[in-house]
Amino acid sequence: MTKLNFKKNEYTPLYITIIILFVMMSLINGHKFLSLNNLQAMAYQMPMIGLLAIGMMVSELSGGINLSLVANANFNGIFIYVVLSWLTKGDMSSANLSQVLIAISFSFLITMIIGFINGYLIAVLKIPALLETLGMMTLLKGLSLVITEGYTISGFPNSLTFLGNGDLFGVPMSLIIFILVCYIVHIILDRTVFGKQLYFTGANQTAAKYSNINIESIIIREYMLSAFFAFSCSLIMIGQMNSVKATYYDSYLLIAVLASFLGGVDPAGGFGKIMGTILASIILQIISTGLNLMRLDPFMVTAMWGAIIIFVLFGKELVKNLHRILNRRKRMA
């Protein structure tokens, strides 16, 4: 019971922001914003930023960061292309379901290997995560560029693109995947021994080590979990873009850091829940869709995304100062 109350308090500001933004965008854009088509489009787009933000959040739980997230997703998509075109001898669109599944399994494997390497270097060799993943990002992006020679590669079979652009009874597949992945990860983070130990490790690595927690293994598994989000992203991305490229969604990398921060993740580690990050992703998506409908420049969206953190800071200070003034008045009276 107490737990429920706690949760309510924690995310109230985010819920309020969502409601305010939603009402504001509805008032400005009218039925355009509230139309079924638009809501569907939002549900279709949100999973990308959501998955990246949660992948980032997972890596931040131990006080790290995963800059290789987007590069990893792109590399993964390109790897699927490599395997598929090898299996089908160059004609990807003719691939049957089993070939698609084989390609997906291989790419899953390679993502886990990348996640393992990240985690190993960070946990065992104690390399700062920022540096390690910066290097990994550059390396993966380089490999993607070498494989694709910088071109956009399309022609994926429908059975694969369905995951990104299809829908089930009107609900976008991407949203279904998103909800599914979020649920699984929620269970992993909040209901398993590993999850609890991960939070503990993030809050204080030394204390964790002295409390029977194998921090090396925890951090390695953490980065593998983070890489899992790169994998999920790549599946959705192939469908939504109908192609792969070395540099898709590059600008989303740092936005993912912002989103997780907005969702209450402490970059120093140990604090942050999946729900907060999901809410923050919804906020970013409402801003993006709303501004797009107003026919504003897409870069206005970028500016607003950057500005929202600063608004939050200003807002917090304002509220604090108001409290102080009110309290002083009360005391005087």
């Binding site: 740092l254 936005i255 870069f299 206005m300 969206v301 970028t302 500016a303 607003m304 950057g306 500005a307």
Partner: peptide
């Protein structure tokens, strides 16, 4: 990251 987006976006 915030100001990067803010400056560039504006």
């Amino acid at each position: 990251i915030s100001t990067q987006n803010l400056f560039y976006g504006i």
